[in-house]
Design a binder for these strands. Sequence first.
DNA 1: TATTTTACCTGAGGGC
DNA 2: TGCCCTCAGGTAAAAT
Length: 307
Amino acid sequence: MPELPEVEVVRAGLAPAVTGAVVRGVTVLDDRALTRHAGTGAEFETALTGRTIRAAARRGKFLWLPLDDGGGRPPLEAVVGHLGMSGQLLLRAPGAAPERHERVRIDLEHPTHGEVSVVFADQRTFGSLAIDELIPTPDGAPGGLGAAEASVPRQVAHIARDPLDPAFADVAFRRALVRKESAIKRVLLDQTVISGVGNIYADESLWAARIHPETRAADLATRAVNRLLGEVRHVLDKALAEGGTSFDAQYVNVNGQAGYFAHSLNAYGRTGEPCPRCGRPIVRVSFTNRSSHFCPHCQRVPRPTGR
DNA sequence: TATTTTACCTGAGGGC
DNA sequence: TGCCCTCAGGTAAAAT
């Protein structure tokens, strides 16, 4: 289940292979992989062929590859990708056998590395690729990690910067929380407030910060918000260092290898197991069609505010 | 306007 | 063995 660390592992893996490469061919095997694309599969193939990839950038869980047509002008378009629940971007040798659930294949020619194919495979088809316009960032900072230009794809512009982005504004995050009546976990999953955090790392960050997931965001003291933000960054950094979290074959790096962070989880997926901090059992509760995992002893139920 | 719910999708795993 | 049911969950559209 790709969240920020998993997508960053993929971005870092793609970057050296695709930067400077020319698209020699595109094959769309399933149009459902283009749900965020404005045109048809055939139009996607035509629009991408012949373009040069300038970088591999990421904001939150969105990836994009800025495209240009030479001439030294800044890229005006990019291939935007989101892995959804089960998407994979794999580097394969030219002519390699089709992957299970392969949806799109992009054949590249790199000036020094030669030919390589980028394969987009996706079991549950929640992920997608698209060609989208690049628009300027309001703050003038690069659009995301790995982006050289102060631009971002239009369909990514409404997403907040992620907490590992140097241009992430801690002050704006704290201000946003003060105005939120929703539970803090719901806010952590709101990509327009803070991006890159999904169900796994939300649970892990809240456990580390000793905050109950149902706590009203506006009720958190500044000190608690700062502690939480610090733990979000720490959890994401640690997961990144371990190559991401893998429970099954759904998340792999560009070479098809799994990450190791699943061994480091303290709360997520550990229902009934002892809390690593206090030894009492971790509980799982239903939360908007998914699950929250937490320690009821270390993460106390928020007291009614009476307001 | 702000917040919450629903649809999208496939395969693994459990119960019978 | 095989059928049916539940679960996993990010995003955007729809509903409240």
